[in-house]
Design a binder for these strands. Structure first.
Lengths: 111, 111
DNA sequence: TTTAGTACTTTGTGATACAAGGTATTCAAA
DNA sequence: TTTGAATACCTTGTATCACAAAGTACTAAA
């Protein structure tokens, strides 16, 4: 069995992952492996089997588009780019996130 | 299909719900319907079919215990009480939550 | 005795994170 | 030339979980 701590963290990551991806892509286009690296650096551990389907989902929903680009160090990379629709959804996510942060504060704060 | 906004909010609720329940019960014991009311008041909408299985799961994991109490206004109520183990897990969840909030800030903040 | 209100429970469905394994490209060393 | 390492993308199967919907049961009032 996995440790309780990891379970807790894993549970909380769910639901904000989509938000993280759109946030990262709102700043600059990126390909899957580089997104994983960035998430790892930010302590948001994600594996390939999670990220690839998620990117494909967001592309199918029209939040992202992509283009292929050659690499000097291996196979070509699929660079994802956020769309206008994606930016609109991201803006909604910003609000939703703020609301949840505020809700937790309320639940923990005042008796 | 459900609205995008609701989808976004629903996704984000996942993973913090357990945290909310333990937080509420760390302050005072409560029964399911009253927990739903409190969550609704804090803008964290949850339905019965979500909450009851969750409480049962947390009880089975030893985070909660419960006792029955008669009500003058209907059927008896199942009052849930957080256990020592539950408080330990809640403490871990506090850290995990702070970490995620901080991670999101990092991902959004610095270019 | 029927209805309204309250409270707890279960079943079926869809979504999704993850583990594990697979495919494909490039380059360098044997 | 072919083998292996590194990089990158993709798929399948499983478990978990939020939710909708329907069900059970108790109390009090009409």
């Amino acid at each position: 069995m996995e440790s309780t701590v990891e379970n807790v963290r894993s549970q909380m990551r769910k639901g904000v992952l989509e938000y993280c991806i759109l946030s990262i892509l709102s700043r600059k286009e990126a390909y899957a492996s580089s997104i994983i690296d960035e998430l790892k650096a930010a302590n948001m551990i994600v594996v390939e089997g999670t990220l690839y389907p998620l990117l494909i989902r967001q592309k199918n929903q029209g939040y992202l588009s992509y283009r292929w680009e050659e690499s000097t160090q291996g196979p070509p990379r699929k660079y994802y780019v956020i769309t206008d629709k994606g930016r609109a959804v991201l803006s909604e996510m910003d609000s939703a996130w703020q609301e949840i942060v505020s809700t937790i504060r309320t639940l923990k704060g005042d008796d």
